[in-house]
């Protein structure tokens, strides 16, 4: 499974998105907003799950806002941290 597929699975399962399948999430789709219905609690839950699954730390809400825009931006953040 690619990192992006893994992220989609985490988003759907850990946020319990009963109305979305992982493959329905496009790599560039905005995660927050009407389409998937994610909100600020989902954002902090994602921060927690990313730390749990990948050991990456997002320190505050403003940092989170830029990283959590889409599957692509999250994947890029994780890859950059893992290279470092």
């Amino acid at each position: 499974m690619t990192l992006k597929d893994q992220l989609k699975q985490i988003i759907v399962e850990d946020l319990n998105l009963v109305h979305v399948l992982p493959e329905e999430i496009g790599d560039d789709d905005p995660l927050f907003g009407d389409r998937f219905g994610l909100d600020s609690i989902d954002a902090v839950e994602l921060v927690f799950q990313l730390k749990k699954h990948f050991g990456v730390v997002i320190k505050n809400q403003s940092e989170g806002r830029s990283i959590l825009q889409s599957v692509n931006t999250i994947a890029a953040f994780i890859e950059k941290r893992q290279e470092a």
Partner: peptide, 10 residues
């Protein structure tokens, strides 16, 4: 730090 699920906590 950051070791607790925000949803579980809420």
């Amino acid at each position: 730090d950051l070791a607790l699920s925000p949803i579980l906590f809420s």
